[in-house]
Design a protein around this nucleic acid. Structure first.
Lengths: 205, 205
DNA sequence: AATTTTGTTAACCAAATGGTTAAATCAAAT
DNA sequence: ATTTGATTTAACCATTTGGTTAACAAAATT
């Protein structure tokens, strides 16, 4: 069984790419099935032939998008590296990933907030990172007197905030500080090193 | 001219309160005029009697919501207080304000991102805070050798990120760190002091 | 009290939108 | 060459939704 009539790229893949583009930009409520079909260069009926309905299609896109957020956290925090390396690689890799998908954080966070708490648990089910190792390493550093006593929750919040928020607050930040798109991206590139440095400076004793 | 037929609360105010509730929760695209009417306990036609259309109503709500973000920044940064006091009061007051409107940041940032760049400039027109004084104070501290040399843009981004992001990433953060709603609010209360402390520790020489 | 103005509603309308149907293509199998 | 089964499309349908109309009710004005 060779590939059927499907065009080169594969209709299903074209649809997924188009859907991702439209959903990420407009959100579940703002997205139109017709727009997705147009973007994919196909008929609207064909869209429903491949994906039963809007919700099913959305779920697929959302799961894939949300999935990008957690596994990376998990891998980094569980890795067999030191406390400081973990912070460094988390910031570097996270900011890097988000730079390649600047609208993903807003999309995921926004849709996540619309879901009921129960659904959220289901979404993260299994993919939740085990923080205990990271927290353990942190408490070791505290006990050894190398870093100040700070609640792990706050440190993690601070780290994620500084990595992700600039992309969510981009329009406001750009307006407030009067910076262009290229200046923004340059600043983000800097932050891959600047954020971990800021954190180390804050916690080092 | 006494008040007309309007019920005690004033129909217009009831509408605005209802609209804010629905828009902030569902966003422009997800909000339904019927839902707003129901929430306000009035007929849908009456909604259009007070506000010509959905867009006009949305603009009013959005302007009021977005307006809460900037003026406070402005007032604090321009105030005749010291560099450190400004950071303290910014974090304290900002987190306080957001705690009272936990869904406001997501709403404003999300709608802002959908607007074209030109519209954003118009929105912030005039209300843009003058950062020069704050930056000047900061550079003085740097020159005096009391804080490390750090780009003001990064400091401001870090400060705003740590104050605002937890409310935007709340579902994710709550899931990742397994905390309840009350635990979350307790943590936010702590952050009013913890964030400025974190910042001072990071920049102090 | 009569009249005009303002506030409120039920019923209605047109456009948009998610989804379906039935026919048409096309590639593979017979 | 014919048949078969999957793919694709144009046309259509039902519901939702923003918005309007016309009539009614309550104040305000005369």
């Amino acid at each position: 069984m060779v590939k059927k009539k499907e065009t080169d790229a594969g209709t299903e893949q074209k649809i997924l790419a188009a859907a991702k583009k439209v959903f990420v930009k407009k959100g579940m409520d703002g997205a139109r099935m017709q727009d997705i079909a147009d973007e994919a260069g196909i008929n609207k009926a064909l869209l429903h032939y491949y994906f039963r309905n809007k919700e099913k299609l959305f779920e697929q896109i959302f799961a894939e998008s949300a999935g990008r957020f957690i596994p990376k956290v998990k891998a980094i925090l569980i890795a067999d590296t030191g406390f400081y390396e973990k912070i460094e690689s988390f910031c570097g890799e996270y900011i890097d990933m988000v730079m390649q998908n600047p609208y993903l954080p807003m999309f995921v966070m926004n849709e996540l907030q619309k879901q009921p708490a129960a659904m959220i648990k289901k979404i993260f089910k299994g993919s939740l990172p085990d923080l205990s190792k990271f927290i353990g390493q942190m408490q070791e550093e505290i006990k050894a007197g190398r870093i100040k006593p700070i609640h792990p929750a706050h440190l993690i919040m601070n780290m994620m905030s500084m990595c992700i928020f600039p992309f969510i607050g981009r329009p406001m930040l750009s307006a407030v500080m009067g910076i262009s798109d290229t200046q923004f991206m340059t600043a983000m590139e800097e932050r891959k090193k600047a954020v971990p440095k800021f954190i180390f400076d804050a916690i080092r004793k």
